[in-house]
Design a protein around this nucleic acid. Structure first.
Length: 131
RNA sequence: AAUAUGAGUUGGCUUAUCGCGUCUGAGCUAUCAGGCGAGGAAAGUCCGGGCAGCAUGGGGCACCCUACUUCCUAACGGGAAGGAGGAUGGUUGGGAACGACCAUUCGACAGCUAGUGUCACAGAAAAUAUACCGCCCGACAUUAAUGUAUAAUUGAUAAUGGAAAAUGAAUGAUGAAGGUUAUGCUGAUAUUAUUCAUUAACCAUUAUACAUUAUUCAUUAAAUCUGGUAAGGGUGAAAAGGUGGGGUAAGAGCCUACCGCCCGACGGGCGACCGGCGGGGCAGGAUAAACCUUAGGGGCUGAAAGACCAAAUAAGCGUUGGAUGUGGAGCGGCCCGUUCCCGUUCUGGAACAAUCCCAUCCGGGAACGAUCCAGAUGCCGACGCGGGUAGGUCGAACGAGGUGGCCGGUGACGUCCAUCCCAGAUAAAUGAUAGGCCAUUCUGCUUUUGCGGAAGGACAGAACCCGGCUUAUAGACUCGUAUUGGGC
């Protein structure tokens, strides 16, 4: 699996984002794992012919905690890098979630090693839950 | 050299791997190769402009902004040069008040002499120069004190003289009761006269010093009144031009010299302004970042502007098809429909009945219908237009552009020439890992040099674009100034 991160793996549609963050939706699965809070949506049944696609993800860093844009940029880039280097953990033969949101919830900037460790655990847990 | 301070420049470098955005070229389906890829502030969003849409006849009011002069600029609240002023330091003139020169530096610097308002606390007083305190002349004769003079009075002391009264004594006189034998004698007590002594109120005279009272005069103080004052009142951010001299009852630009201030014309400067000259005794406290006045400027909204393409979808429009249905011409057989006639029933009316009239249902009879033409309405369907959602394209990366040079200008800046293309995303690219170097901090060994180890790299992330301003900024470098130390 290539370690690329093209546009198709980034969640940009406002509609889907609204669906993902809609409060109380039964379709959205959620769990907490330091330093993330993860939201995900399963694949719709109708589009079963394109099941080889990897999920589209979105990363958020709260502005309320990190006031400066530099800090938010740094965290987002580290999280994205951790996902890019570890997304091979997703087994294409098993059903994958379609959309994932990683919400960064730590109160301070943590190092790349810790983020990578958390990301690995989060991906594994995501697969387990989705099955 | 160090330190402080001001101004300016810079704002870690590099290699490899894996990635990201964009452009170009191959492929034209995977993909591959190459180029480029955050800042001086990208920040705050405080000014100004480009650009875009909307609005808009002219003028005025309101509101907002600007405010020494000249210049630069597309424009500005920005910048440059200058003017006046302030602060600090130095030199210097003067008796002082106050100046002159030099260096550094600061600042929104039109107008309180258009009008209105405000001025806490302190202070006599914060704008009316009066009240108050104070100072001075005068009046009044009031009070008090002192002094002088005169007069009176009272008291004290001393001396002299007199003396009521009291007490005592002496000498007389009278002499009751009682006693006694008794004319007589005695006779307490009492009364009284005289004399003396003591005490002594009191009186008179003289002397002494003092006191009191009254009057006269003088001085002082206090009070009252009239007037003159603005020198003084030490508080305050700010006190009614300042200093010296004269002057005065006390004072005062009241007078005078100097300083300051105001006015005038003259000369210099594009101008702000400056210079000397002449005149004026001097009015005008501060505050306009109070309202306000004067002069100049400002249409409103911002790229989430705006333009375009366009699945979906509502209204609407056009073409066309279908069924329904209207009118005319025309044909004619049934069902059926329409029309007319007859009968019956029912309703209503003619006051009631009869009868008649109107409309309706039912039954019977007669006539019409094919087809063609006309214009219109509603329904259903198809296609197209329209509309604009999801989405996409443009706006949007060649520009008041950068760099270098000549020339002009004190300078900001401008003309010209050469050269370069230097981020362009849209849930939003610049990251991760590993290594080396650089600088910093801590630390071990080491006399230093040096050899190691650890930490970790200032402020901070483009979003339509420019010109500014403001704010943040570790460290390094350059220049100026000041102080200190050292050397020549």
């Amino acid at each position: 699996m290539p370690q690329t991160f093209p546009k198709s793996e980034r969640l940009c549609s406002k509609k889907i984002l609204g669906e993902l963050f809609k409060k109380g939706s039964a379709a959205v699965g959620t769990f907490y794992l330091f330093p993330f809070r993860v939201l995900y949506l399963p694949q719709p049944e109708s589009s079963s012919e394109s099941n080889v696609l990897l999920p589209a993800i979105v990363i958020t860093v709260p502005k309320r905690i990190f006031k400066r844009a530099v800090d938010r940029n740094l965290i987002r880039r580290r999280v994205r890098e951790a996902y890019r280097l570890n997304k091979h953990l997703f087994n294409p033969e098993k059903p994958l979630p379609a959309y994932i949101a990683f919400l960064y919830t730590a109160k301070q900037i943590i190092s790349f090693e810790e983020i990578e460790k958390g990301m690995k655990l989060a991906i594994v847990k995501c697969i387990m839950k989705n099955v």
